[in-house]
Design a binder for these strands. Structure first.
Lengths: 302, 302
DNA sequence: TGTGGTAATACGCCCTAGGTATTAAAGTTC
DNA sequence: GAACTTTAATACCTAGGGCGTATTACCACA
C-alpha cells in the first residue's frame, strides 16, 4: 500500500501542489518536467486517487489532493524534526545526564552547575544522584552515571579521568555555647583536647583519611574520636556537646540553628572538588559537560 | 541534508531497530543482508551520527538511535495517515458536503437526513444552505452546492439529475377563530370565497403555479389572491384574518400559536420532495449521499 | 486556422538498489 | 589455544528505474 511510496514523491508532490505548474515545479526541484509527471502519476496510482485535475492549461488540486498536501507537509516536517532531534541527541544536547553529586554539594555547588547546564543546553535533562564520592567511580565505570561531582582525594582509577574544579573551605562546627563559639576562625591546634566527631571510615575512607591527616599535621590530638554513621548523627553529637567536627563549608547552607561555624586558619585546610568521568568518554553528553564546566563561575562556598 | 533520505531507509531502520540483528531484519524485509547494511550506512552518513553500536555479535541502538526510532515511527505513521485520509477524501468520506435545502424542510426532513449522513460518514461535515428550490439549480451547476433538497416540480435542466424522495402533505392554514377552524380536514372547494394568500410568483414560480393548478382543479375560486413577499408576511396576513394559505405541512413544526392547520382531502393535494445534483457528478461525496439517501426512512410530515 | 504553451509519451542512458560470494572479526567449544 | 560458528562488512555484478532529450497531443487564444 504505502510501501511503494518514497519521500521523493512526497517532495515532488508538495512542490507541484504549491506551483500548480509542472514546468515551474520541475525547475524548482532541479529536474526536468517528464520525470515529475511520472512520479506524480506513480503517487496517484499508489494512492488510488487523483491528486490533481489537469486540463491542459490549468493544474488544480482535487479534494483528495488538498487533504494529502496538508498531511504531506506534516510528514516532511516530521522527517526534518527526526533529523534535528537525532543530531541533537548525538551531540549530547538532548536526553538525560545522570550526574553523581557528593553529599552537601547538592545544596552548594550543584544548583549553580545545573542552572548553567540548563541555560546552555535546555533540552538536556539533568538527573542528580547524591552519593558519597568513593561510591561514584564504579557506577561511572559501568555507565550507570555519566559523570560525578566528587571530593578529592579519590583513589586513582586508570579507566577514569579526574578533573579538578575548585577548592572548598573546611570549617569546624561546635555547639553555639562552646568556649570557641565567639571565634570566627581558629587554628586546628586550638582544638586539641576536644573530642573529634567523624563519619565512620568505611563510609568514605578517602575523606576520613584526609581529615585525619589534616589534624595530625595541625597538631590536633583529639581526646577521643567519636565515630558516627550519618550526617544527622554527626550533627546530633555536636549539639549534645560531645565535641567538634571538621566538615566542608557547604554544610553551612543546610544547618545553622544552635550551631557555630569557625573557619580553619591553617594553610591547606580545604578540600578539592572535581569531576570524574570515563576516560574513553563514550557519551557525547559528557563532552558538553566538560566544555561547559570550565566556563562557569563557582559560587563562593565559605 | 534530509534531501537524500528516502522512506525505504526509514523502514529498514525501524525494522533493524526492532530486530537488532541485520540478518533477521533483512529477512523480515524480504531482502538480503548486505543491502540492509548499506542503506543503514547511508542513513547514518546523511544523519552525521551513528544509529547503532555494532560489536560483531551485538547490535544496539545508540542514544541518537533511540531518539531517531521514536521519531521515525511517527513519520511512518504519518505517511499511513496521509494515505488513509487522502483515500477517504477521494471516496467522499471526508470533507464538506454543501447541501441546498428548500425553506421549511430545514426543520422537518433535513434533520433526519443530516443525522443519517453523520451516522454513516462521521468525517463528512454537512453545510446547510436554506434556499428556495428554484434558486438551487444554478448554484449546483456552478459547483457552489453539491446537491439540493428541493420541492418539485422544478424546471428540467438537462445538466442536472432530479431524484424523487418522498411526498409531503399540503395543508391549509387559517386563524384559529376562523369558521373552518373546527375542522381537521377540508376539501379545497370548501375554501371558495376566501381570500388566498400566496408568496409572490417571482420568488418561486414553479411552486406558485403548482398551488394555483391545485386550486383550479379543486374548484377553489378565491375572492382575491393576496401576494406577499416572505413567509413571515404570509403568516401575518393569515393572523390578520385576511384569508387562508396553502402551505407544505412542514410549516407546522415551526409556527402554531393562534394558527389552525387543516389537511386537504383532495387526492394529489401534496407535493414531492427530491434531490438535485449534477448529472456528471464530479464529486464522490454526492455518490455517497445518493447511496445513503435511499436507505433512510423519512419522517412523516403531516 | 495557425501559433504558443503545456502535460504526456517514447526512448536511451546511467545510477543505484539488490543479489551472490567472500572476508573479517568476535564468540564458542573442545 | 586451535577449530568452528556466527555475523556484519566488503567486493562485484546485474537489472530496474529515475532522469534527460526529443517528440507528441491537446488546449487556448489570436
Amino acid at each position: 500500500m504505502t510501501e511503494s511510496i518514497e519521500l521523493r514523491q512526497l517532495r515532488y508532490f508538495a512542490a507541484l501542489a504549491e506551483e500548480l505548474h509542472f514546468g515551474r515545479a520541475a525547475r524548482r526541484l532541479g529536474i526536468s518536467q517528464p520525470p515529475l509527471t511520472r512520479q506524480i502519476q506513480q503517487l496517484e496510482r499508489a494512492l488510488g486517487a487523483p491528486l490533481f485535475e489537469r486540463t491542459k492549461h490549468v493544474v488544480q488540486l482535487t479534494v483528495a489532493g488538498r487533504v494529502f498536501l496538508e498531511e504531506t507537509r506534516k510528514t516532511l516536517e516530521q522527517v526534518s524534526r527526526s533529523f534535528e532531534l537525532a543530531q541533537r541527541a548525538h551531540r549530547g544536547e538532548l536526553g538525560q545526564l545522570a550526574l553523581g553529586v557528593a553529599p552537601l554539594l547538592e545544596a552548594s555547588a550543584y544548583p549553580a552547575l545545573e542552572a548553567h547546564i540548563r541555560k546552555n543546553f535546555p533540552h538536556v535533562q539533568v538527573k542528580r544522584h547524591v552519593l558519597p564520592s568513593d561510591q561514584q567511580p564504579p557506577l561511572i565505570r559501568n555507565a550507570s552515571l555519566h559523570a560525578g561531582l566528587v571530593r578529592l582525594p579519590l583513589e586513582e582509577h586508570d579507566s577514569l579521568t579526574l578533573e579538578f574544579l575548585f577548592r572548598e573551605a573546611l570549617v569546624v562546627i561546635m555547639r553555639d555555647d562552646h568556649r570557641l563559639a565567639n571565634r570566627r576562625a581558629v587554628r586546628i591546634a586550638e582544638l586539641s583536647g576536644q573530642n573529634r566527631i567523624a563519619i565512620r571510615k568505611k563510609f568514605n575512607p578517602a575523606f576520613y583519611r584526609y581529615i585525619r591527616l589534616l589534624c595530625d599535621r595541625g597538631e590536633y590530638r583529639a581526646a577521643r574520636v567519636i565515630p558516627v554513621n550519618t550526617l544527622p548523627e554527626l550533627l546530633n553529637s555536636v549539639l549534645s556537646a560531645d565535641g567538634v567536627a571538621i566538615v566542608p563549608a557547604s554544610l553551612k547552607r543546610q544547618f545553622t540553628s544552635r550551631l557555630h561555624y569557625a573557619r580553619l586558619l591553617d594553610t591547606n585546610a580545604d578540600i578539592q572538588v572535581g569531576l570524574v568521568y570515563r576516560r574513553d568518554n563514550p557519551s557525547q553528553i559528557v563532552h558538553l559537560l566538560q566544555r561547559v564546566i570550565h566556563q562557569m563561575e563557582w559560587p563562593n562556598i565559605a
